[in-house]
Simulated scan of single mutants.
Amino acid sequence: MTDPVELGTLRLVLSIPTSDDVDAITAACQDPAVQRWTTVPSPYGRDAAEGFVNAFVPAGWEAGTARTWAIRRRTDDGTELVGMIGVEGIRDGAGEIGYWLSPQGRGLGIMTEAVSAVLDYAFDADGADLQRVQWRAYRGNRPSARVARLAGFRFEGTRRLGATGRDGREDEWTAAILATDPRSPADGWPSEATGADATD
């Protein structure tokens, strides 16, 4: 069993999502970009958020196969939930990162900051102690690709029709970062993945 761990940065608190977050998660998952680029249920109802925080998240921590955090931006009044981030499929020293931001959190560098904190934990011997973290996204998801490149992920290719989207098969971008890789923007990404209109 792995006890949930809270992570912190100058602007953010990353902590396990709870039943108090159900309404905020439900609202955020109505956003068209979250619906388009993630695998959250569609339509997304309150019951989906309840299942996420009450079953999926604690089960992953307990089994040691997934670590999930709510991304909370520090405010004068406390914190505001602006997204979600996690590492899933943890096995044999590897895992896969996934994340989303609500509209009010975009364009501020929040996700880049959150990914950096999660990678610190993922590669730490006292954290998840991973050797490799993989990233995948539907082709065309430039905001996610920009964050991954800035965090140091190395582009590994485009898998033709490698993912299942809501409307059938889609091409999929893949990248990864190793514990021994520099944590700085990586070269080798295709221009279509890192265009100037991408935001984090």
Rank of each mutant, 00 (worst) to 15 (best):
D126S: 10
E62T: 09
Y138H: 15
G140R: 08
L14R: 12
T75I: 10
A28N: 13
D21W: 03
V57Q: 10
G140V: 00
S191C: 04
R91Y: 02
S116N: 14
R139F: 05
D31A: 14
F56I: 12
T199W: 02
P143K: 15
F155C: 07
G93N: 07
T164P: 03
A175Q: 04
D129A: 14
I90W: 03
A28G: 12
P17D: 11
P32N: 10
T164W: 05
R132F: 00
V82M: 02
G95I: 10
T164C: 13
A114G: 11
D129C: 04
T174V: 13
R154H: 05
W61M: 09
T18Q: 09
F52M: 07
E62V: 11
L101M: 01
R139Y: 01
A33H: 14
N54L: 08
S191E: 13
Q134E: 11
A145L: 06
W37H: 06
T174S: 11
L101S: 07
V22H: 07
E6S: 10
T2L: 15
D21K: 05
R91M: 08
D21S: 13
E88I: 08
G195V: 08
W37Y: 12
I85C: 02
V133R: 14
N54E: 15
S191P: 00
G157L: 03
V57F: 02
E50L: 15
R136G: 15
S102T: 11
